[in-house]
């Protein structure tokens, strides 16, 4: 357990959930993801205890007759997958305090997901991006890899701006293997930048899950009276009467998230709005196979 960003209890509650790639992947090891290469290695690999969601036709009934337990036969055509979890560590992610701090929430989300992915046999790499910088640990399999991932995530500090396309391009260049991307960010950058990143992912035929992390204040804007706001990235100042603009702001943020959802849908990425007030397990369940 690494200082609380990985909540074991939450992870335990999610251990029956699997996170599958929606498309076929080029996995080299056995896994739960459908291989891009069908029938290339039909040999029996191992038995796996039956879990809900397993196909019944793969159940070894004879083994069931001997042991009175359900096992499914695993063949080489179900391969593992490499995941690249990218956490936005820009300055804007530093908003909030305690567990509701956006970066903390992103770290927790990333750690839990990494734990679960490693546990289901996938390779997981983790990194962060801030401005145009990218810091990435290449994906590796094995439960023991969770420790360096947690260490990496805990070391993140909010700074710099939010630029999505640049770091993503770097990640695509760095990664030698096929991987699905998980991007955890507040996405407070130009929508064109976001669209550009989604275009890149689609062009590279990468599955992607976008966790859109927002603080409750950013959604509800519960401030009162005249306040001078300082942008955490651009340092731009603005004095507004919070009461006067609340409705307008809420409307704009709703429109923003709505557009992002559409944009992700357009580029075949999955969009999950993840307010920091929402328990970490909820957005994860949203993307899991049930």
């Amino acid at each position: 357990m690494a200082n609380g960003i990985l909540d074991i209890e939450t992870a335990s509650r999610l251990k029956r959930f699997y996170f599958r790639s929606p498309s076929r992947v080029r996995g080299r090891k056995a896994g739960i993801h459908k291989s891009l290469y069908k029938g290339i290695s039909p040999d029996f690999l191992e038995y796996k205890e039956y879990n809900r969601g397993d196909e019944l036709r793969q159940v070894d009934w004879r083994l069931y007759g001997r042991h009175d337990r359900l096992y499914v036969k695993k063949f080489e055509d179900e391969v593992n997958l490499a995941w690249c979890i990218l956490v936005d560590s820009s300055a804007s992610m530093g908003y909030g305090g305690g567990d509701s701090r956006k970066l903390r929430y992103a770290e927790s989300l990333a750690a839990t997901l990494a734990y679960l992915l490693l546990r289901q046999g996938d390779s997981v790499g983790a990194g962060s991006f801030s401005g145009k910088d990218l810091s990435l640990m290449p994906p590796r399999a094995g439960n023991s890899y969770i420790a360096p991932i947690l260490e990496k995530l805990e070391s993140l500090a909010p700074e710099g701006g939010t630029a999505l396309a640049g770091p993503l391009l770097k990640a695509l260049e760095v990664l030698k293997q096929d991987a699905s991307f998980v991007i955890i960010s507040d996405l407070l950058t130009d929508e064109s930048e976001i669209e550009k990143a989604l275009q890149l992912l689609k062009a590279a035929k990468k599955d992607a899950v976008i966790f859109h992390v927002l603080h409750e204040d950013e959604i509800d804007f519960g401030f009162r009276g005249p306040i001078e706001f300082l942008d955490m990235e651009s340092q731009e100042k603005v004095i507004v009467d919070a009461d006067a603009i609340r409705d307008g702001y809420r409307k704009r943020i709703r429109e923003f998230t709505g557009r992002l959802k559409l944009l992700c849908h357009e580029y075949e990425s999955r969009y999950v709005l993840s307010p920091t007030s929402r328990p970490v397990e909820e957005p994860l369940i949203e993307i899991a196979d049930k």
Binding site: S92, M93, Y95, K102, D186, L188, H215, D217, E218, F223, G225, I227, E228, F229, L230, D231, M232, E233, S234, E236, K237, V238, V240, D241, A244, I245, D247, G248, Y249, K251, R252, I253, F256
Partner: peptide, 18 residues
Amino acid sequence: VVKKFPAVRFLIASRGDA
């Protein structure tokens, strides 16, 4: 009160409305 806030650009846009 001076408040650091990530979504200032939405404030600026909303201020125009209000």
